[in-house]
């Protein structure tokens, strides 16, 4: 009721803006603090470095946003990223398929993995947590089987994903393009709006004629495709597909989505929020590196940040609903 009452206020409602963009405010404060703390933060190379760092997690988290909005969770994205990168490299480098197929094959592998996870939970009635947890292990295992536990060098088109486009690194270009695409699909298409409805209230969506199962499968396919893209960026930067690539990244991706204001119970989430969430994580890591904080302590700080960010969000929601 209070949100309705404050909405028609004239001019720019600063308080409402703060309340709705807590993560962005946090990010700005963080950047200001780092700017003051170290001169090395606000330099071109460092900012590009952050951009490259953030791109893999953010691209993965864009796909994750769809799943979380639909009230699911996808723990398999890190493994899917690895298998996609490995699969695309294997097909070209080892099996000798034409180079042009490399990226399509990678994306198809991601889509297929997502489809399997989605089908397991939609038609097999497994909770998404369990279905994707199973896939996390299975897919990582397949990656090791294909590669025999050794890195495979990437095709030239995947390597290109890790290069520069003029002065700008390709990962940042992909980040921007895929972010815009994800936001468009989430907010403007029937697929995206259906995800919100299913996550908000599955039964109400079903009784309105929304194909709930197909929606669930679709969001996992989207998550798989974005994970594959993320994996290929990572492989492109390294010029090789490592069997342990992106392991553990799923947790960062989930953290980015949640810091960005999405609700794990579904129905709420924004791509811009997810990007900010990913940036918060990347900037903190970067800042702590610049300030020479040990990698061990960094983990402590990041964990605390996740708890604080989500804690604020919970408080805010509680206030809105009085």
């Amino acid at each position: 009721m209070s949100s309705v009452a404050t909405a028609p206020k004239k001019g720019f409602d600063f308080k409402a803006f703060l309340a709705n963009n807590g993560a962005l405010v946090g990010l700005v404060i963080l950047c200001l603090a780092l700017f003051i703390a170290t001169p090395r933060f606000l330099t071109g190379p460092n900012l590009l470095n952050i951009g490259i760092q953030v791109s893999t997690i953010a691209v993965m988290a864009f796909g994750m946003t769809f799943v979380i909005v639909a009230a699911g969770i996808d723990l398999s994205v890190g493994s899917v990223a690895a298998l996609s990168a490995m699969g695309s490299s294997y097909a070209i480098t080892t099996a000798g398929l034409p180079d042009g197929l490399s990226i399509p094959i990678g994306l198809a592998v991601g889509a297929l993995c997502g489809w399997v996870t989605g089908a397991m939970s939609a038609y097999g009635k497994l909770p998404t947590f369990i279905a994707s947890l199973a896939m996390l292990t299975v897919v990582r295992g397949l990656t090791l089987v294909i590669s025999d536990g050794r890195p495979i060098s990437t095709s030239s088109s995947v390597s290109w994903l890790g290069d520069d486009l003029g002065p700008i690194p390709m990962p940042i270009v992909i980040l921007v393009v895929s972010g815009l695409l994800a936001a468009f699909v989430l907010n403007r298409t029937v697929i995206g709006k259906n995800a919100f409805a299913v996550g908000g209230n599955t039964e109400a969506a079903r009784l309105s004629g929304i194909p709930v199962k197909r929606v669930l499968v679709t969001v996992f396919v989207i998550s798989g495709v974005f994970a594959a893209l993320s994996g290929m960026i990572l492989a492109g930067r390294l010029d090789s597909a490592q069997p342990t690539l992106a392991s553990g990244y799923e947790l960062d991706a989930i953290a980015a989505v949640v810091i960005g204001g999405a609700s794990l119970s579904g129905g709420v989430g924004r791509i811009s929020g997810t990007l900010i969430g990913a940036l918060v994580l990347a900037v903190i890591r970067n800042g702590l590196n610049l300030l020479s904080v040990s990698a061990f302590w960094q983990q402590v700080v990041i964990g605390a940040v996740i708890a604080i960010a989500v804690g604020f969000d919970v408080l805010r929601r509680k206030n809105v609903k009085h």
């Binding site: 919100f196 409805a197 908000g200 109400a204």
Partner: peptide, 12 residues
């Protein structure tokens, strides 16, 4: 529980 998505708007 069956009719509405409570977080969504009236229009949606």
């Amino acid at each position: 529980t069956q009719g509405l998505v409570l977080d969504a708007s009236v229009a949606e």
